[in-house]
Design a protein around this nucleic acid. Structure first.
Length: 201
DNA sequence: ACGGAGATCTTCT
DNA sequence: GAAGATCTCCGTT
């Protein structure tokens, strides 16, 4: 299965968030391939977006958001969890843009995922941004890597694009009370209708 | 089934 | 010093 190219990621962030649905996220780990179908995403785009890490400008932590499209932005939060994002926006533009991967449908490496999410039903392995990084063993090692490099341990395959008729759109989830309109209700969350694996919030 | 609170640490104020 | 792009556990309904 071919990988998504730099061109794919070098578009308007919202468009990329929508188009990432149905694609396959793969972690080629030392223990084997662990992969899932992307069923839910959220876009964080621009200097004006109060919910985005890029809102207050470039810092050491978020610098990758301003860099080359197709790189991973993985950060630690709540003292426990890793969140995986993909940098997406027109290339060559100094503007923060990234897509949070919120949920996957488990596809490959099911035994590894079961072990990483021990004691939980398959439905709860990857139905949330913190859960899917646990299931796929994604952490600090995977921050700031180029997903389009042939030897990257983390990458995306073209998978199966999803038609508009199967896509639902709504406001983003879990934003703090410091975020105000219009960013609070911006329809920048995308998910596959009727998927059993979208996050439950 | 649903709601609330604690965990736990990095980043920015 | 506080809040955070979350999850899990424990209580009550």
């Amino acid at each position: 299965m071919p990988r998504l190219s730099r061109i794919f990621y070098s578009r308007v962030t919202i468009e990329v968030a929508r188009d990432l649905l149905g694609r396959t996220l793969v972690h080629q780990s030392s223990a084997g391939r662990i992969a899932g179908r992307i069923v839910e995403t959220e876009a964080y785009s621009g200097f004006g977006d109060e919910a985005s890490h890029g809102y207050r400008g470039k810092t050491e932590r978020n610098a990758v958001m301003f860099g080359t499209p197709g790189f991973s932005y993985v950060y630690f939060i709540y003292g426990n969890y890793w969140m995986m994002n993909i940098v997406a926006r027109p290339d060559g533009v100094d503007y923060p843009g990234a897509v949070l991967i919120r949920a996957l449908e488990p596809l490959e490496g099911l035994e590894l995922m079961a072990s990483n999410r021990s004691g939980r039903p398959q439905r709860d392995w990857t139905n949330g941004p913190g859960k899917l990084t646990l299931a796929l063993n994604i952490d600090a090692q995977h921050d700031g890597i180029d997903l389009t490099r042939p030897d990257s341990p983390l990458f995306l395959e073209t998978g199966q694009p999803v038609p508009d008729s199967s896509v639902e759109i709504g406001p983003r989830i879990g934003l703090g009370r410091r975020v105000s309109e219009p960013w609070l209700s911006q329809p920048w969350r995308f998910w596959i209708a009727n998927s059993d694996f979208v996050s439950g919030q």
